[in-house]
Design a binder for these strands. Structure first.
Length: 197
DNA sequence: GGTCCGATGTAA
DNA sequence: TACATCGGACCA
């Protein structure tokens, strides 16, 4: 049984929330069943100063609107054919968010295999933001929801099983100095950490 | 290891 | 009309 984490957990600066999410559970309850995974990789996006953030320069559109909302909100975003999951951080009005990039399955492994395809090796099920969303059955329908309420929520986990590491973020280009900011956090050596591109 | 390209939301 | 917080297929 998993219980949603305290709402206050999300009320902190994005550069603190991103590493704090490592080792916590991400849980999704659907009619097909429950799937849960331990988060091992996150990235911080620090709008409006961060050129790599969708909310750079306070860009406020239908898509980024929820980044300006209260912390703990779910920001889902469509990338090509994939859905990516973010956690809104900071305080209301500051467009900060944490991208969840990788997690280790702890429950509902078969359900994840069903959703992803049975031919994949286990780490390939959830070692990337798009893969993780698909394995958990998360879609744009979760946009604007709360990370501390069912059916999609963060639950207190066992913490890190290895050393905390930081490095440059993945998949951002043409963003000046932001390319080098060490705002990607992950558990060293864990096979569910995504591959650097 | 590398390269190519899908198929969709968003904004210019 | 262009491009993105990516993944998969295919080639080597």
């Amino acid at each position: 049984m998993y219980n949603p984490i305290d709402p206050g957990f999300f009320s902190r600066p994005v550069l603190e929330l991103a590493p704090a999410l490592l080792g916590q559970y991400i849980v999704h309850e659907t009619p097909e069943g429950l799937a849960a995974a331990r988060i091992v990789e996150t990235e911080a996006y620090h709008g409006p100063e961060d050129r790599a953030a969708h909310s750079f320069n306070n860009r406020r559109t239908k898509r980024t609107e929820v980044m300006f909302a209260d912390p703990g909100r779910i920001y889902t975003y469509q990338m090509h054919t994939h859905t990516l999951m973010n956690v809104v951080a900071g305080e209301e009005g500051t467009p900060h968010a944490v991208l969840i990039r990788g997690a280790e399955p702890v429950e509902g492994l078969e359900l994840m295999q069903e959703r992803r395809g049975w031919h994949f090796k286990i780490p390939e099920l959830t070692n990337g933001p798009g893969k993780l969303s698909k394995a958990l059955g998360v879609t744009m329908a979760s946009y604007g929801g709360l990370w501390y309420e069912e059916p999609l929520f963060i639950a207190p986990g066992p913490g890190l099983g290895g050393e905390l590491k930081a490095g440059p973020r993945v998949g951002i280009q043409n963003t000046g100095d932001a390319v080098h900011y060490p705002w990607r956090f992950f558990e060293e050596g864990n096979p569910f950490v995504s591959k650097y591109r």
